[in-house]
Structures are given as structure tokens and as C-alpha cells.
Design a protein around this nucleic acid. Structure first.
Length: 593
RNA sequence: GGUCUCGUAGCUCAGUUGGAUAGAGCAACAGCCUUCUAAGCUGUGGGUCGAAGGUUCGAAUCCUUCCGAGAUCACCA
């Protein structure tokens, strides 16, 4: 809006002055850096050729013209080739008056019919969720919320890997060494129990391998000969054949796992509109492959295995069906993608999956396009970076995995300790206090993870991540609570009216209004870039601006009724944007803290 | 080896299609609570933006090469 007014005004002035159109794609209106006077800046360098004048001269001439012709341009100054424009308080106040009451400020109504399908989480059922899953889940949830706020219809889906050799390992270990253990009879989360069995399998397998003769055999071959591996394979075959006993055990153990996952998801605050299970989708895709062989897009080798030749695209040959006709991961992903395409006709099919699978998704899309599936263009891999620990990568075998539940426990516990030390929970009931600790602990965790650009590898240092000062979730929450306290007290100062006749803004009032003005733009960018980090950074800037305003300018103590009234409205507006923006990250804002 | 990603302050991170003297937080140091919540605010110190070339009015940002880190190239998922 503001940018439109200014760029139209600029073009107009340029034509009048120089009789030629400026290159519109070169016209960049940016926010003026705080060390200079003005609100918006236009760089003149790109226009010197057409205008045949020095940048300073163009800036001076156009600045004068714009000041004269655009009523919201109150003043201008020129520094080197930069034209700095001061926008009138009238414009900012007008913006303020039109939006401060709107609880949906910045959020768009749903405008699209075709949904965006976002797949995230996608756990294996043989072990509990860990820190890596936490990043995945928080990202998937937040990106979905951000897309909704940008007017998209969103369907969140989860594809659970509930079958395969992994699960068989856990099942086998339970049969052999489980001694009838169950979550019910020993008060343990089901996913943890199944995870323990998986670890046990690995341990026993290692013992077995150590005793086997290694002469002349490579590792893979050795592994295939291990009796435990053979047993696990047999179990998988039984499962595929539908053997009732195997299926029953499988079902039982998966049920344990789901109960555990549900608990973790609930604490994380994530949810799904639809859950797919691989046991129901793993046979999909075979028809697609068959079709590809018939049309000559795919080819068979002598052993009857089916491949796709991607060497022309700079990739390798990719296996799609084994010699025995069974499918691989890629096969079923082809099928599952088609299933979703038919089910939802999505405008986008977003997969929130780690960047270790970049190659997989390149291939997935390519193969589908080769198979003439035009909708595959909608496939988008939201490829996020790994989470590393100070010791390096997380490795389950080395026991360096950070468990999701334990992590949340720790965050909440630290929040409790911290809050009690500050004496902020003294007047709270036990329930209220518990709720607060949870909000703070989870807020700290979510903000810490989401403030980093999804694409980047991030470092998770357990000590630093629990910090509650500075650029953290609790800082945002504190600001919200602070405003809330102010508004509670404001009742004593009479009725706040929405009528506002303020004429002039103080510097800190103005920065805050400008920051609020930024929100819609930031939200749009966060949607386009699939980046909760932009929202997180914005929240921090907004909270910081508010705290500076709060520190410097009296609010309740202001005696002028118009000023008092305006400042209270400014508080309400800020609080509300803090709340709706942090909701996009899945962060709750406490009323008091 | 092929392909791809990343290198910004001691540490964790911003830096939006190339724009002004590269910014925050943490950590260190110095201030601010008899006045609206000090989980806050203000200030100081801290940088060869991995290195070298190139493109141009202008490069942390684009191109090339090199150095360093990581991912991937499975009849695992």
C-alpha cells in the first residue's frame, strides 16, 4: 500500500522531470536505516543513465517533486545517491486507526480452494521421537499455520512407517527377551518400551556377529548370515504373508507406540488432519511402475528388476522394483504421492523432510514427471537442516540421541526453577503454575528451534537452549504478560475509547507503529519462503520495540487523556499481534509471568 | 571420485530479488527499580563476512578457483 503510493509517485515524478520511464524492476523501496532521517529510501544509482544526471541531483529533484505531489510525503533528504523520504505521522496514525481493532490484522481469509498438503513428522514405529523429530514437527506445524494465515487451505498429513524390517527387529527382541513386558504392567511409555527392544536387538546382534568367523566375508554378507537377521527377515515375510500371530504382535506393539506418540505430539502441540500408514500404502506404486515399463519410460534388467535411467538428468539409475517384484521406498512414495494427488488435487504437495533426502525427492519428482504426472510439479521438498549437538551428530548407537520427552521435561523443569527463583509464581494456584511452567518451557524450546532458518544445520547446546533472557521465547512471552498487566490496571483509569485524535507521534511510539505496519509483509514472506524463522525474528523485533517504548514513555501516568488513550490502544494492538504471530509458531502467551 | 549444501564477533544466529559505517542475543565490563512486571532498558569493548580473483557506480549477497565442514550417490526407510 505505502510502497505502491511511493513507487507510483516516483514513476510519475520521474516521467515529468526526465520525459522517460524509469526501469520499474530497478525501483526498490526499502526501509530507511535508523541512523538516517526518514522512513523509506529509494536508491538512485540505477536511474542515472536514463536521467543523465548525477544521483544526488536526481534524488534532489525527485524528492522535491514527490514532496509536492504526494501528501503523505512530508519531507525528504539526500545522502549520496540515496533519497530518504519521511512519511507523515498522519499516514501512520491513519494506518493505526484502521487496524488496531482488527483481531485478524495481517491474517488473510482463506482465498484458495485447492489445498496445500503438508506432510510432516513421518516417524518410524521402532523408536521414540528425538530432537530431530522435534525440529521436523515444529517446522511442519508452523509452516502449515503460516500458510493458513496466508489464505491457503492446508491439510496436514502424517505418513507413519509402521512396517518393515525395523519393526520386526523390535518384535523379535520382545519375543525373545521381552518377558511379557507391556506399558500397562510397568508404567513405561509404549514407544519407549518398543525402542528398548530395538536397542536390545542391536546389542544381541552385535554379540552374535562378534562370534562369527569373518574370514573372507565382507560386512554385508556377514550381516546377512547372522541368525538374528535371518529370523527378522523371516518374520517380515510372515508379516507380508499375513501370518495371524505375527500380525497380532505387530498390531499390539504398534498400538503401544501410537499411545506414546500421541502423548508426545500433544505436548508438542502438533496435530494432523490425516494419518497414513505404510502398511496400507506400501503396495501402492507398483501399477505406476508397470505402466512405466509398458510405455518404455522405465526398463527391466535381466533379473527382472525395474529401473529408471536418470543419467541424462545428471543422476544415476534408480531401482524401483526388486527382482522378486517387491517394492522399495521410492515405489511406495510414487504411489502415495499419486494417492494424495487424486484425493486432494493439491496446489502444493509439501514434504517436510530432512536434507539428507534431497536426492530422494529429486528422483521422486523426476520419475513422476517422466510418467506424465503433471501434478508432480506441485511437489516441494521442504528440506531442513540437521540438528547437531556440541559433540557432533546425534547417533542412536552411541547413545547421544536427545529424547523428545526428556527434552520437554527438562525445559519445563528449568522454567519452574527459574520462575520460582524470581518469585513470579507465588500467587498462583498449583494448576496455574504448572500451566505457566509448561508455556514457558515449551515457548523457549519452540522459539529456539524455529528462529533458525529451516534450511540451515543448527546447533543445539542443552545449556544455552534453556536460556530465558534476550532473544528467546520467554522474552516474547514476558512482553505479552507485561502488556497484559498494564491493560488490567488501565481499567482504573477510565474507559478507553477507540476514538483517537492524536496528531504527532513520539519516536518510540512511531517505531512501534512502523513495526506493527510490517507484520502483513513479514507474514507473506514467511509463507513464500516457508520460514517460521522470519516470524520469530519479527516477534523479537516487535517485543524489543515495545520494551523500549515502555521504558521511555509513561503510559498510565500520562495525564493528557488523548495521549493516554492512544498509548493504551497501542499496547492492545501490540499485544494482539504478539499473540497472533506467536500462535503461528505454536507458542502460547501467558497472561501473567 | 560425482552431485549438492554450508563457512558472518569467543559462542548461537540475523542480514528479504546486489545498496549507505555488516546487526542482535549470550558471555565480559559499566549504569538504571520509594514511579505502569528488572525474564526488562541503556552504554562499552569485540569482525580481513573462510581465502584469492572477477562482474559494477556499489558485493557478506552474483561468477570462477582454492581451503574447510557436512549430506548424498543402498535391492535401508
Amino acid at each position: 500500500m505505502l510502497e505502491n503510493i511511493l513507487s507510483l509517485g516516483f514513476i510519475q515524478a520521474f516521467i515529468e522531470l526526465y520525459g522517460a520511464e524509469p526501469a520499474k524492476n530497478q525501483l526498490i523501496i526499502q526501509k530507511t536505516r535508523s541512523e538516517f532521517e526518514g522512513d523509506r529510501t529509494i536508491v538512485m544509482f540505477p536511474f542515472v543513465k536514463v536521467a543523465k544526471r548525477s544521483p544526488e541531483q536526481i534524488a534532489a529533484e525527485i524528492g522535491a517533486k514527490m514532496k509536492q505531489s504526494i501528501d503523505i510525503v512530508e519531507n525528504f533528504n539526500v545522502i549520496k545517491g540515496f533519497l530518504n523520504l519521511s512519511v507523515s505521522d498522519h499516514y501512520w496514525l491513519n494506518f493505526f486507526n484502521q487496524n488496531h481493532q482488527n483481531p485478524q490484522f495481517g491474517l488473510k481469509e482463506q482465498t484458495t480452494e485447492l489445498p496445500v498438503v503438508v506432510e510432516y513428522s513421518s516417524p518410524n514405529t521402532n523408536k521414540p521421537l528425538h530432537l530431530g523429530h522435534v525440529r521436523n514437527n515444529l517446522l511442519g506445524y508452523s509452516v502449515s499455520e503460516i500458510l493458513k494465515a496466508n489464505g491457503h487451505k492446508v491439510v496436514k498429513v502424517n505418513l507413519v512407517n509402521d512396517r518393515g524390517i525395523h519393526i520386526c527387529k523390535s518384535m523379535l527382541a520382545w519375543q525373545k527377551w521381552g518377558n511379557g513386558r507391556s506399558p500397562e504392567n510397568e508404567d513405561i511409555k509404549g514407544d519407549k518400551l518398543v525402542g528398548e527392544m530395538y536397542v536390545r536387538f542391536d546389542k544381541e546382534l552385535k554379540l552374535q556377529l562378534a562370534e562369527m568367523p569373518v574370514a573372507g566375508i565382507d560386512e554385508d554378507a556377514l550381516l546377512k548370515k547372522a541368525p538374528l537377521m535371518i529370523e527378522a527377515q523371516e518374520m517380515l515375510q510372515k508379516w507380508e504373508a499375513g501370518d495371524p500371530e505375527t500380525r497380532l504382535l505387530w498390531k499390539t506393539m504398534n498400538t503401544w507406540v501410537y499411545a506414546g506418540f500421541d502423548e508426545t505430539y500433544k505436548r508438542l502441540g502438533v496435530d494432523f488432519d490425516k494419518i497414513y500408514y505404510e502398511s496400507q500404502t506400501y503396495l501402492l506404486g507398483k501399477d505406476l511402475v508397470k505402466e512405466g515399463v509398458e510405455s518404455g519410460v522405465l526398463f527391466k534388467k535381466e533379473d527382472e528388476s525395474v529401473w529408471c535411467d536418470l543419467t541424462a538428468d545428471g543422476l544415476d539409475e534408480k531401482l524401483l522394483l526388486r527382482a522378486d517384484g517387491t517394492s522399495v521406498y521410492m515405489t511406495q512414495d510414487l504411489g502415495t504421492a499419486e494417492l494424495r494427488a487424486n484425493e486432494y488435487h493439491p496446489s502444493k504437495l509439501i514434504y517436510v523432510v530432512g536434507n539428507e533426502q534431497n536426492y530422494h525427492f529429486d528422483v521422486l519428482k523426476l520419475v513422476l514427471l517422466k510418467l506424465q504426472r503433471e501434478w508432480a510439479d506441485a511437489i516441494e521438498h521442504l528440506s531442513y537442516g540437521m540438528v547437531e549437538l556440541p559433540q557432533g551428530k546425534m547417533k542412536s548407537r552411541e547413545g547421544t540421541v536427545v529424547d523428545a520427552d526428556e527434552l520437554m521435561d527438562e525445559m519445563v523443569l528449568t522454567a519452574k526453577t527459574m520462575t520460582e527463583e524470581l518469585g513470579k509464581s507465588d500467587n498462583l494456584s498449583e494448576t496455574e503454575a504448572a500451566r505457566l511452567y509448561n508455556q514457558i518451557g515449551m515457548g523457549a524450546l519452540k522459539y529456539f528451534i524455529l528462529k533458525v532458518d529451516p534450511k540451515k544445520t543448527m546447533m543445539f547446546n542443552p545449556q544455552e537452549s534453556v536460556d530465558f533472557n534476550g532473544n528467546t521465547g520467554p522474552f516474547i512471552q514476558y512482553t505479552h504478560a507485561r502488556i497484559n498487566s498494564l491493560l488490567r490496571r488501565s481499567v482504573e483509569y477510565g474507559t478507553v475509547t477507540t476514538d483517537n485524535s492524536l496528531g504527532k507521534l513520539l519516536p518510540k511510539e512511531k517505531s512501534l507503529v512502523l513495526q506493527l505496519h510490517n507484520f502483513p509483509e513479514i507474514l507473506a514472506e514467511a509463507g513464500a519462503n516457508r520460514s517460521p524463522a522470519l516470524i520469530a525474528n519479527y516477534l523479537y523485533d516487535l517485543a524489543k520495540d515495545f520494551n523500549q517504548f515502555y521504558q521511555e514513555i509513561p503510559i498510565l501516568k500520562e495525564e493528557d487523556a488523548t495521549k493516554l488513550n492512544f498509548r493504551l490502544l497501542l499496547c492492545t494492538f501490540t499485544q494482539q499481534v504478539l499473540k497472533s504471530a506467536s500462535a503461528l509458531l505454536g507458542m502460547e502467551m501467558p497472561e501473567k509471568m
